[in-house]
Simulated scan of single mutants.
Amino acid sequence: MSSLRVVRRMFCAAAETAAAPVTASRWERLKNSKAGVWCRSLVSDYKEACREMVVGAWKRPVKASVYVTLLGGAWACFHTNPDQSSFEAALLERSNQLGLLSPWIRNATSDGHVQSLVKLRNKGQLRHASLGLLSLVYRADYDPDTTLYEAQCSNLSVPWRELLQRMLDVGFIGHWWILDSKMKDYDVNEEEFKHLPAHMQVTSPPSVQEVERSERLHKESWLALTVEEEEKETNVVDRKEESIGEESQIKALKEEQTQA
């Protein structure tokens, strides 16, 4: 009986194996798994989003161009956002420009601003904060290497609400705007002209005619004199001398007649 049962089980297993469908391949099992279904849905969502983006840009080109311009501008600002090393390089360059000038002709505003920044840099109190599209340079109370408790405690650091009061410069599109504005006319000492009258302190730009006349005279000053011009000049001088001699003779004759 036991042998019959074993034979019956073998036949049943063979029949089930023959009746079972062919198993799927590994790639099909991977596609039908949870990860495969999620990846296919994600790709379809992105495909649909790109199609809607293209269709929307075709229907509304002005809106699409505005969005593209904003995104391009944001990328350009992020790419040209200056860092702390660029600020230090700009500060040293401006300091060297002022160092080449005499103290008597330096602009007091430019010199004072640059000197204050150099002192803070030497003390280690300059900080740089990047906001993605622009950067800020502000003043801190302590050097980062100071071992004081007030300098190392994070709870006593500079709060964000005081950042505008401590702000020293703004970096945007590769330029430090406050530093550049302070260096305008850095080689003009306004203290030299404060004693002049009001109408002499204010200068107006020359007109186009005056500029053209100055340029023409400057070009003519470099030209060599020709022989004809030299002869004309000598003739004019001789005539002037002759006229002066005749006038002196006439005066002498008049004086002799009056004495007679």
Rank of each mutant, 00 (worst) to 15 (best):
L70N: 08
T146N: 13
F172I: 03
A20G: 02
C153N: 14
Q115D: 12
W104V: 09
M200N: 01
T258F: 06
G132T: 07
L164W: 14
W222L: 05
T146E: 15
E190G: 10
Q152S: 03
A108P: 09
E255D: 02
S102F: 05
Q115E: 15
C12H: 07
R8V: 10
R139H: 05
L168Y: 04
E247N: 03
N155F: 09
G73C: 14
L253V: 06
I173D: 06
K254N: 08
M200P: 00
K34I: 06
R121T: 09
E150G: 01
D143F: 03
Q125V: 02
A49N: 04
R166S: 02
N96F: 14
V37P: 01
K59E: 05
W58E: 10
C12F: 08
E247L: 06
T226R: 14
D169Y: 01
N235F: 07
Y46A: 10
S116T: 14
L42C: 13
V66R: 15
T147F: 07
E210S: 12
H195Y: 11
E247S: 11
S221E: 12
L156H: 05
S102Q: 09
K59R: 11
S65H: 06
E220Y: 09
L71A: 14
L120I: 00
I178L: 08
R51P: 08
E229F: 00
K31D: 04
V188C: 01
L253P: 01
